[in-house]
Amino acid sequence: MSATSEKREIVVEARGIHKHFGQTHVLKGVDLSVEKGEVVVIIGPSGGGKSTFLRTLNFLDKPESGVIKVAGMTMGQADGGTLSDAGLSRQRQQIGMVFQQFNLFSHMTALQNVMCGPIHVLKTPQAEAMADAKRLLALVGLADKENNYPGQLSGGQQQRVAIARALAMHPTVMLFDEPTSSLDPEMVAEVLQVMLDLSERGMTMVIVTHEVQFARKAADRILFMEDGRIIEEGRPEAIMGSPRNERTKQFLNMVLGEV
């Protein structure tokens, strides 16, 4: 699927995002805009604010200042002022999120996990939700695991179910918060493959990851984030090949040196 004809449509836009945790200034004015179908990968050292920034995009962490627009909506803002809980929940339906710890609902089977959002949030009819959920589980290669509970699945399988669960809401954009960081090495590839497939299907994605090789392959653009700021950004070959910033250079040497 080609997204080139719509390349200029902005799906995610963040401007001047600031966030504190207590005394710590975690985000110091972060800007980002993501076009439809674009895959943006955020890399950088731990504690640099990558995950926090991603979590502000769907308001799981509310920024103290700055504006976030997703799919034309200003997050957390209604015409009259601050948005109600129900209104914010409606906005979040447009934004899929995948967590480092998978966070599958542990009292539901894989199929129930994927159906849960459509049924309870979108009020999709049961049969339709189930057909869609089965299709998505097949898409992530887990058609035969639909009746397994999360505790019966490996980490990689759980994360793929989690991706299917997010996709079931038919989101405009998908956020990935270190999706492979708590996986055993042999399971990383299966999850990255699903993400790669998604990007080829034209899904707009913002990914926080330590998988630099994956970033090189999948990203349209890489952001290097440190100390609450985006220090450098550009196309993968530019960032990986000839980073301009000294810190980016150090970081990449360190990460790639280990591979």
Binding site: N58, L60, D85, A86, S89, R90, Q91, R92, Q93, I95, G96, M97, F99, Q101, F102, N103, L104, F105, S106, C116, G117, H120, V121, A162, R165, A166, M169
Partner: peptide, 21 residues
Amino acid sequence: PKGQFEAARAIGMTWGKTMRI
């Protein structure tokens, strides 16, 4: 776990639904 709560919120459940479901 807090992650269960966050995952429910992230798929667009209101606070009430998150608690109930």
